[in-house]
């Protein structure tokens, strides 16, 4: 197990180095840079003034030199300055990351809270009216675009309650924060919960046809014990993988949700930074997302062994 962890850790490092190169090069292959965008708000491009800005920002240096500067900065936690606000990237990213993390955590919590038990119920009550209803709801969760759902929620609130649940000021306490984030989290988590529900259902159905379930039943085990102690424990393995993937995938959904609910998180900020070619923000943020994704994958792999004692990692 120890050797496996070390090997996986080294592989993680290698993956991250590869990702850093890809991010860096891809960003610079995109047409246009911050100097073009700065001129956009002035309505013209002056080649001499543009060259001066590129020089000021170090964009005139060869790409490998720029990459080296960035990596050297990363190692000493110097993330550079945002080209747009001319503020340190750390100051721009720092306050936004917890917001998105909370939102993503809450969305994931909602998805598991609803997706897992409803998946079990749907499997246990297979082909009943309840099963059909839940399947239809889950299908709609998979097919409704999150921006549409989010806008619908806002319109519902405005027309019914005369208010709008968007972010205006930082919440004062934990309760306000929970209330503020729960609606967007539900909007973005709806899709994930539908996915988890459908996967739990199919996984449960497969497990419930296994011999050991029949044996448990013949030995007189209660239905609850069969469903939750024997079946769910085994059915949950593929679901765990999906939850891990969804955690990373949530960023995509959060971009839209943060935009519609006006939440000042990093997901929406990332898109803005890409459009503005704000390289220091984009490359640091994408790197952070890559680290989170790789770490989550690593954690999920380790969790496998905990959840299924049959799984052993080769030494």
């Amino acid at each position: 197990m120890g050797t496996y962890i070390v090997k996986r850790f080294l592989l993680m490092l290698l993956t991250l180095i590869g990702i850093s190169i890809i991010i860096f090069v891809l960003l610079r292959l995109m047409p246009g840079n911050i100097a073009d965008i700065m001129f956009d708000s002035a309505g013209f491009v002056d080649p001499a003034e543009k060259a001066q800005i590129e020089k000021e920002l170090g964009l005139d240096l060869p790409i490998p030199v720029q990459y080296f500067h960035w990596v050297r900065g990363l190692l000493v936690w110097d993330l550079g300055f945002s080209y747009v606000s001319e503020m340190p990237a750390v100051d721009e990213l720092g306050p936004r990351i917890p917001i998105t993390a909370k939102l993503a955590g809450l969305a994931l919590f909602f998805s598991v809270l609803f997706g897992l038990p409803l998946g079990v119920i749907s499997a246990v009550k297979q082909d009943t009216a309840l099963d059909y209803i839940m399947r239809v709801v889950s299908l709609s969760g998979l097919s409704l675009p999150s921006f549409w759902l989010a806008l619908l929620i806002l319109m519902f609130f405005v027309s019914t309650f005369g208010t709008i649940p968007i972010y205006m000021d930082p919440p004062d306490n934990l309760w306000d924060e929970l209330v503020l984030y729960s609606i967007p989290a539900a909007a973005v988590g709806f899709r994930s919960s539908a996915l988890i529900m459908r996967l739990t259902r199919s996984s449960m159905l497969e497990v419930m046809r296994q011999d050991y379930i029949r044996t448990a039943r013949s030995k007189g085990a209660s239905e609850n014990s069969i469903n939750y102690r024997h079946a769910l424990k085994n059915a949950v393995l593929p679901v765990t993988t999906i939850i891990g993937i969804e955690a990373a995938f949530l960023i995509g959904g959060l971009i839209i949700t943060e935009t519609v609910f006006n939440i000042p998180g990093v997901a929406h900020f990332l898109v803005e930074a890409i459009l503005m070619r704000d390289y220091p923000i984009v490359q640091n943020l994408v790197m952070l997302i890559a680290v989170v994704t790789v770490v989550i994958n690593f954690a999920v792999d380790l969790l496998y062994a905990v959840l299924d004692p049959r799984i052993k990692y080769a030494e």
Binding site: P31, G32, F39, D40, V45, L275, M276
Partner: peptide, 10 residues
Amino acid sequence: ETSNWHAKVA
């Protein structure tokens, strides 16, 4: 893409 518009026009 909007960021490339004026550069293209120039």
